[in-house]
Simulated assay, not measured.
Amino acid sequence: MSILTQPHSLRQLAGQFLADLLPTSCLLCGADSGKHLLCPACADDLPLLPAALCPQCSLPTTFGERCGACLHEPPHFDATCAFFRYDFPVDRIVHALKYGHQLAVAEWLGDTLAARLAGLTLELIVPLPLHPQRLAERGFNQAVEIATHLEKHLKIPVDRYSLQRTRATPAQAELPLKERHKNVRGAFECRSDFSGRHLLLLDDVMTSGATANECARILKLHGAASVTVAVAARALKHSARHS
């Protein structure tokens, strides 16, 4: 009897058996990486953020103190947790997820962030939403995919529906830094009461911080006691300028 006629669970078992037998190629260099996304050499070469970071926006500071931009104009989020510097080849890994539909990257990013977030006081994971039009074009929300794996590690539920993007906007990367706040102002709405709750706002990358800031503003308007932003990678090209 063909395996195609067997119960779904049997087909799943066969697929897992084959996956265990066949080696995986490193996403970056193509070398054998076993069951891992990256080979050890590529994993060791990934650009990490420095140890001394602003606790609020994760930009480098001399001694890990709050940066001048956050002191001058505090963002609505309370802290940022980031792991990698958004530079080559981390940008290639993120693009493989967002534009190459390689969902294994989401699992790897979730595993990576889980180690950094363990022990924090958090009650709910809120993935940064995509506008329905962008979601239809891409077919998935990368933040939701990462959140799904992060949930398994942290044992914190994911709220996929309360925060919604209601206005389509040009991509932030296409705009000058000073226009990014204006671009996302009023682009989100919240459909739940988060009074007194400690939220984790999750995305793949933070560049200027404008989108996370607007989402945090909306979440706090709906009662959130704190909003911690978690991203796999933080762009440092804008130095200590926070926008």
Rank of each mutant, 00 (worst) to 15 (best):
Y99Q: 06
P47E: 00
V227R: 01
F140E: 07
G223R: 06
P55M: 05
F140W: 01
L219N: 04
A114Q: 08
A43D: 14
G34T: 06
D91H: 02
T166S: 11
P23Y: 02
A225I: 05
R160S: 11
C39F: 02
R217I: 01
G34P: 10
K220G: 04
E107K: 15
R180M: 04
S195M: 12
R134P: 05
S25V: 11
C54H: 08
P40I: 06
D204I: 02
E214I: 02
G68I: 10
L236R: 04
D44C: 11
L49A: 09
F17Q: 14
E73S: 13
A225R: 10
T207P: 05
T211V: 01
L71E: 14
A115M: 14
W108S: 09
D111Q: 15
K98M: 01
A82S: 11
V205S: 09
H95F: 00
Q16F: 15
E189G: 09
H72I: 02
L37E: 08
F188M: 06
A224E: 04
L22Q: 13
H36V: 14
G30A: 01
D91P: 03
T80D: 08
G34R: 09
I3T: 12
L48W: 11
A187W: 00
H242S: 13
Q6W: 15
C26F: 03
H101I: 07
A14Y: 14
L154T: 12
N141F: 03
L199H: 03
L200K: 11
V229E: 06
E189V: 12
P75W: 00
D44G: 09
T207E: 01
M1Y: 11
H238C: 00
R85Q: 12
A43I: 08
P127I: 03
A96V: 02
D32G: 06
V205R: 10
A31C: 12
K237Q: 11
C70M: 08
V90Y: 00
F140Q: 07
G64C: 07
T166V: 15
V90E: 03
D204H: 05
A51C: 08
R134N: 07
T80A: 09
D111H: 15
A235F: 10
A240T: 14
P176T: 08
E73W: 07
P47V: 00
V144H: 13
N213K: 08
I93E: 05
A79E: 10
R160Y: 10
T121P: 15
I146H: 05
A240I: 14
R217P: 05
D44K: 14
E151I: 09
N183A: 04
T228L: 13
L49P: 10
P157H: 05
V231N: 04
F140D: 10
E145S: 13
A224S: 08
A52D: 14
T5H: 13
K98H: 04
A240Y: 03
N183K: 04
L59A: 08
G196M: 03
D193E: 06
S25R: 15
G110L: 10
K220Q: 05
A240E: 14
K98D: 02
M1C: 11
D91R: 00
P170C: 04
F194S: 04
L124G: 10
K152V: 13
Q133D: 12
D87G: 05
A136K: 14
V90K: 01
G64K: 07
A240D: 13
E179I: 00
A216V: 02
R241V: 11
C42N: 09
C215T: 03
R92I: 00
Q133M: 05
R167T: 01
S243F: 12
D87E: 09
S9A: 15
